[in-house]
Design a protein around this nucleic acid. Structure first.
Lengths: 332, 332
DNA sequence: CTGAAAGCGCTTACAG
DNA sequence: CTGAAAGCGCTTACAG
């Protein structure tokens, strides 16, 4: 059962009485081949169950049919879901996917240099100088890549992001509509694009409902649960507010923990909302109102776009913006 | 800055006045080479910053330096954390990692056949006939692999599992010690090894505390939240019990949801415990008592063992069993 | 539109 | 202990 050797391009050529060169051309749709010949080759290909030897192909300058995804880390559901989208989009088009965490930049570059990788998907965290150096290097090597989230909005780079502005705006509407008139807004680090877009959208939505911007009090966090807790602790010591909106769910969780520890009830005493629809958000008591990020779709779309890029198709949507949906739950 | 071409083995040979064959031997520690020669080659290697071209190496029968991890899915924190362990262990030894979800078996087999992959890591779900067919195929191709969890305990296959028996046993002790005398035990599917080991351990621990096995009532679930909810709903309609122990946290969550919906309080009216220490477990109200699975360590250890296998080192711990720790929280 | 041939960068018998 | 040479399976100018 099952032949012991994989057929090579030589076998296929013999099968249909043509040369390796011609077979190679039809496999790669390169050069011009007579239609009748294409048919003949395709039949032989199917009959033998030919699968190209990736190493040989790469070595002679062909495509590796593998993509690399670069992530800050893997274990967070946020990234894992994204990865799942990437994996499925890649599989559908017969691409393999290699994972790299961001700190392995040197090995990444080597992979590209040696043609082991056709293209890259990036989910960067914070815009660091390291990142821009890496991008410059990649540009120089002329390898296609797509950014996921946090795009730099350069025309030369394709990206897939969520509509952070729209998400912030919807949240503002929601809070006003539920009757909250003052809010503590916990941001991410000052230079973070996601965070500043959400701030921007929130202010917009708040103004659209005829509210005064002075009723929004901004404090900075670092996306961690601990920072949410800390900011809340310092803030509520001296001040009070109708609602808290944290720019991600982990910080919102920190706030919730603090508020409950004080014996106050949510949302009666203070409402709390987050952003991301993190894995735990639905199961908190009270369940957390948030904005859902379509991570799977982002991974899927980004991968599809990368493949289009690789295949030389003109990319219509260089910058894709996926809408973020409000998920209203018990905490507001 | 940075030479434009990667140095080849030819360059290294030229640099130290030796042949490609000799350089190759020292790189791969194969064959016998004079110590002085080794030194010379290693200096040239370092000086030029040589990195082997993986494709060329694979094509000529060498190692690909890449490992594949096969998972049922990626997005669950459980698998994602495991993956993180795999990635880090692999990186440390300069291996790349390729992800495959279980349903891509054909492409997986091709990868192996073409030498694209040196070894495999498996986290299988349920023992299906498909799986055993796959294993047979792999054995025939003589490619090393390590199983994670759910081991088949064949001597020929290396594995890393957690101590399911110990985990079940500790949980029994815990429940008895907290004063619970009767328990609804929600199992996984009947043929699931993890589940049956936990049952076994629980019975053992229960007996060790002098309790009667008749006070344990078994019901079968399928690991989903919904099945936990459903089993609880049917059970509590007619019966009652001091505590519920579900064989994973998702089912325990389902039970919690049902019990809360009935207006009963946990743990005063019924105690609830799970297994896994899933991502959400800590944040539930009440927080869930459970047994923690060291997923990261499992991935890390399994990968290390696979690499040992690949390098021909005799594997001392063919079957590694990692201990599972009780995490006592508010729900018991 | 098709084929013969060189070449990609390694590894590994085979000699010596 | 070391080197010359063949070969892995492709792709791609170069001819025709």
């Amino acid at each position: 059962m099952g032949r012991s050797k994989q057929p090579t391009i030589e076998d296929v050529a013999a099968e249909c009485g043509l040369s390796r060169a011609t077979v190679s051309r039809v496999i790669n749709r390169s050069g011009v081949v007579k239609a009748a010949t294409v048919d003949k080759v395709e039949q032989a290909l199917a009959k033998l169950g030919y699968v190209a030897n990736a190493s040989a192909r790469i070595l002679s300058g062909g495509s590796s049919m593998t993509l690399a995804v670069v992530l800050p880390e893997i274990w967070r559901p946020y990234y894992a879901t994204l990865l799942q989208g990437v994996e499925e989009a890649a599989s559908q088009r017969d691409y393999n996917v290699l994972i790299k965490t961001i700190n392995r930049r040197d090995s990444l570059l080597n992979l590209v240099r040696l043609g082991q990788i056709d293209g890259l998907l990036f989910r960067n965290t914070l815009p660091s100088t390291l990142d821009t150096a890496l991008y410059r290097e990649l540009d120089r090597m002329d390898v296609p890549y797509v950014q996921i989230g946090n795009a730099m909005k350069r025309d030369s780079i394709a990206s897939v992001t969520i509509d952070n502005i729209g998400g912030g705006r919807t949240m503002a509407h929601h809070l006003v509509d539920r009757g909250y008139r003052s809010v503590l807004f916990i941001t991410g680090p000052a230079d973070n694009v996601d965070s500043s877009d959400r701030i921007w959208g929130f202010k917009l939505g708040w103004a659209e409902r005829g509210m005064d911007e002075a009723a929004i009090i901004f404090r900075e966090g670092d996306y961690s649960k601990e920072s949410g807790y800390g900011v809340a602790a310092t803030f509520f010591e001296q001040n009070d507010v109708d609602a808290v909106f944290a720019v991600n769910d982990r910080m919102a969780l920190g706030v919730l923990l603090y508020v409950k520890a004080c014996g106050r009830t949510v949302p009666q005493d203070v409402a709390i909302a987050g952003f991301d629809d993190d894995f735990f958000s639905e199961y908190l008591t009270p369940s957390l109102t948030t904005v859902r990020q379509p991570m799977y779709d982002m991974g899927f779309r980004a991968t599809n776009n990368l493949i289009l890029l690789l295949e030389g198709s003109p990319l219509k949507n260089q910058h894709v913006i996926l809408s973020a949906e409000l998920v209203a739950r018990e905490s507001t």
